[in-house]
C-alpha cells in the first residue's frame, strides 16, 4: 500500500469513529460530549486559521473578528428576521466573508503588519457590536438565540445533534481545504510562498488569490461562530470577539501542524481536552500558561507541528524495520 492509500484508509476509519463511535460511546455523557463539541469549535477555527497561514502565507491575530461577525449575523438573522437556523448559520459564514472585504487593503501588508491589522479589525468589530445596541443588544448581549431544529427525527438542538453538525462543518472544511490545496490555485499559492514577485511575473494574480483565501478562511470561521451561537444560545460582544477565539486555534494549529489539513483538528482536540481536563483542575488561574509553553516548545523543537513529527518518526521506524 502506498502512503496515499494508507492516508485514505486512516481518514475513513477516523470518520467512522467520529460519526458512529463517539455518539455511541459518549451520547449519554453530556459533560464529555460538551467538551468535545467545544474542542471541535476550536478545531474549526484552527483549520480556517491554518488555511490562511499555510496557503495564503498570512498570520492572523484576529480570527475572533470572523468568529464574532459570523455568530452575530446568524443570531440576528434567526432572531429578528426568522431565518431558519441552518440557513442563518451559512449566512453567518457569508457575513464573515463579506466582512473580510473590509480587510482587503490589509492584504498588501506583510508579516506582523498584516497580523496586527487583522487584530485591529477584531477590536473595531467588537466595539461596533457593543455600540450597535438596537441590533446586537449591546453589552447585555443576546439571550435565547434559537437552537437547531429537529430534522428527520434527529434533534440537532441536543448535544449529540450539535456534535454531528460541528463535525460535519469540520469535515467539509477540511475537504474543501484539501481540494483547494490540490488545485492549480494551491500550486500558485505554494509558488507565492516561495517567491511572491516571481509568481506575479509569470501572471499569477497573487492579490486575488490571497483575497480568496482570506474570504474562505473567514467563511469557515463565521460558520463555526454561528454554530456556536445557536449551540449555546447566548452571545455577548466580549465573548463573541474574545481573544480566546484567536489564541486557542493558533495554539491548536501550531501544535497539530499548520501546514497539514487535519493537524489543526488533532491539535485542537489534544490541546482543549488537556487544558480542560488536566491543567484547569491543577491551576484554576493562568492555566493557559501551558498553551504558551506548548506553543513555544513546538516552534522551537518541531515548527512543523506534532503530526509531521510523528509521521517522520513512523517513517524512520519503518525504515529500520525494513533494514
Amino acid at each position: 500500500m502506498t502512503t496515499k492509500h494508507v492516508n485514505r484508509l486512516l481518514l475513513i476509519v477516523a470518520l467512522a469513529v467520529a460519526y458512529v463511535g463517539v455518539p455511541l460511546l459518549f451520547g449519554g455523557n453530556a459533560y464529555v460530549l460538551g467538551l468535545i463539541v467545544a474542542a471541535l469549535t476550536i478545531a474549526g477555527v484552527a483549520v480556517a486559521w491554518a488555511l490562511l497561514g499555510n496557503l495564503g502565507g498570512m498570520v492572523s491575530f484576529g480570527h475572533a473578528a470572523f468568529f464574532g461577525v459570523g455568530s452575530y449575523t446568524s443570531a440576528v438573522l434567526a432572531m429578528k428576521l426568522g431565518v431558519p437556523v441552518f440557513a442563518a448559520m451559512l449566512l453567518g459564514g457569508v457575513g464573515a466573508a463579506v466582512s473580510s472585504i473590509a480587510m482587503l487593503p490589509a492584504l498588501r501588508l506583510r508579516g506582523p503588519y498584516f497580523a496586527l491589522a487583522i487584530l485591529a479589525y477584531a477590536h473595531i468589530f467588537q466595539i461596533l457590536a457593543t455600540e450597535m445596541t438596537p441590533v446586537t443588544g449591546g453589552a447585555g448581549g443576546l439571550l435565547s438565540i434559537p437552537r437547531f431544529p429537529a430534522v428527520f427525527g434527529v434533534d440537532f438542538g441536543e448535544k449529540t445533534g450539535g456534535y454531528l453538525i460541528i463535525l460535519t462543518i469540520i469535515v467539509l472544511s477540511g475537504l474543501a481545504y484539501d481540494a483547494v490545496r490540490r488545485s492549480s490555485w494551491g500550486l500558485a499559492l505554494k509558488a507565492m510562498h516561495d517567491t511572491e514577485v516571481a509568481t506575479r511575473v509569470v501572471g499569477v494574480p497573487s492579490t486575488h488569490l490571497k483575497a480568496a483565501m482570506l474570504a474562505l478562511s473567514a467563511f469557515i470561521t463565521g460558520v463555526v461562530g454561528a454554530f456556536n451561537a445557536h449551540f449555546i444560545s447566548f452571545l455577548e460582544p466580549d465573548y463573541a470577539f474574545s481573544s480566546g477565539w484567536t489564541v486557542l486555534p493558533i495554539a491548536a494549529a501550531i501544535f497539530g501542524g499548520y501546514r497539514t489539513v487535519w493537524g489543526p483538528v488533532v491539535g485542537a482536540l489534544a490541546i482543549y481536552l488537556l487544558d480542560q481536563l488536566l491543567f484547569k483542575p491543577i491551576m484554576p488561574h493562568g492555566h493557559q500558561m501551558v498553551l504558551g509553553v506548548l506553543l513555544c516548545a513546538m516552534i522551537l523543537f518541531s515548527p512543523g507541528g506534532l503530526m509531521p513529527a510523528l509521521r517522520r518518526r513512523a517513517a524512520k521506524e519503518a525504515r529500520h524495520a525494513h533494514a
Partner: peptide, 30 residues
C-alpha cells in the same frame, strides 16, 4: 529563544513571542 529560530523566521518568531507573551501574562495572573 528567538535566536534559535532559523526556519520560516518571520512567522515563527511572531508565534514564539506571542506564546512567550501568553506565558508571562498567565504567570503574572497566577
Amino acid at each position: 529563544l528567538l535566536s534559535r529560530i532559523h526556519q520560516d523566521r518571520e512567522i515563527n518568531s511572531l508565534i514564539l513571542t506571542f506564546g512567550l507573551g501568553i506565558i508571562l501574562t498567565n504567570a503574572i495572573l497566577s
